[in-house]
């Protein structure tokens, strides 16, 4: 009202400062509210943490599985049977050229004499072959492709390139098992997405429901503050911050749960790996991944409380 009572407005904060001070205070205060009912806060936090730890833990296992499969890639080999008229020198030149390819890890020349000797030894047709006089076998290049679990199409592309080489007669790749592994990992990855989405929705509902109860419990407080002139934004804020704290604590707890589980599994996995002469180690969430998990959790907390607040706060009016 226009009553020029100057003593009415001296030491009010500059709007922006007041805004931030108020935000900071509300943030702390809403944390205090959580500590005032530790049992129910802890329960909500735990539910969020478990709901997040489940898909995140599966994700960790899956990325470990991808690592293992990368370790198996040695067995994915392309055999290039060169044309009969390709000399040893040409074969060596081709091998050096192929080694420069992006998608190729290593190339080994199997000389046709060496191949013949091998064949004689394992086939038992030694005499028969000797009677042929000349060596019917071609030189073979054993090509080791780089396998990228994310990009199975790269190998197919490489195969096409190799087939088009004029020195190459036949290019052969047994990709069957690689394909199977890929499709299994693909299914697992999609499955994790589905589970993640479902459980993220569960987190939204849990936070939303907790905030809804919170709003109901503080109904009279909300009415009174509205009567005193609080804006909807002012009333909304502590609830949003509460959702944020739930998200933050749930995210951190989820991280701890995953790290603990990895810790428990790591020993056994190492034992198993050593039986296979592998130095494979179970790796947990990278720091950046953990931060994304916590950030995502905070977002879910905020979003859940936002939804609850939007649905339930505006209908509370003083009467």
């Amino acid at each position: 009202m226009s009553k020029p009572d100057t003593s009415n407005k001296p030491a009010r904060n500059a709007p922006v400062t007041a805004y931030f001070i108020h935000h900071a205070r509300t943030l702390i205060a809403s944390l205090g509210v959580l500590f005032r009912s530790p049992a129910s806060s802890a329960m909500t936090t735990a539910v969020i943490a478990i709901a997040l730890a489940l898909p995140a833990g599966l994700y960790v296992l899956l990325s470990n599985a991808s690592h293992v499969s990368v370790g198996w890639d040695n067995s994915a080999q392309i055999s290039l049977f060169l044309k009969a008229n390709v000399s040893e020198k040409q074969a060596r030149t081709l091998a050096s050229k192929l080694r420069l390819y992006d998608g190729i890890d290593s190339v080994k020349l199997i000389h046709k004499d060496q191949a013949l000797a091998e064949f004689q030894r394992v086939s038992g047709f030694g005499d028969a072959i000797e009677s042929l006089g000349s060596n019917p076998l071609p030189h073979v290049l054993a090509v080791q492709p780089v396998v990228d679990p994310e990009r199975p199409d790269k190998i197919a592309h490489l195969m096409k390139q190799l087939r088009e080489l004029k020195q190459v007669d036949i290019a052969q790749l047994d990709l069957q098992w690689v394909k199977r592994l890929y499709s299994m990992l693909e299914i697992a990855r999609k499955g994790i997405w589905v589970i993640s989405i479902l459980l993220a929705m569960a987190v939204l509902l849990v936070v939303g429901n907790t905030i809804r109860l919170d709003i109901q419990n503080r109904r009279s407080e909300i009415e009174v503050t509205k009567l005193i002139g609080a804006t909807n934004a002012f009333i909304r804020r502590p609830f949003l911050y509460t959702g944020f704290w739930y998200g933050l604590s749930g995210g951190i707890l989820a991280w701890i749960l995953i790290s603990l589980s990895i810790g428990i599994l790591a020993g056994s996995v190492e034992n198993l790996a050593s039986l296979y002469n592998s130095a494979f180690q179970l790796t947990g969430l990278a720091f950046s991944e953990a931060m994304s998990l916590i950030g995502f959790s905070c977002l879910l907390g905020l979003l859940g409380s936002w939804i609850a607040v939007g649905r339930h706060l505006d209908e509370i009016e003083p009467s």
Binding site: R12, A18, Y19, S220, E223, A230, T231
Partner: peptide
């Protein structure tokens, strides 16, 4: 009265000032 029973008398009386964004000391 419509007082908030989970806070002190001081905090109840301070509420309109907090809503309007007054400085702590004020």
């Amino acid at each position: 009265h419509h007082l908030l029973y989970d806070r002190t008398v001081f905090d109840n009386v301070a509420l309109p000032l907090v809503i309007a964004g007054y400085q702590h000391r004020e």
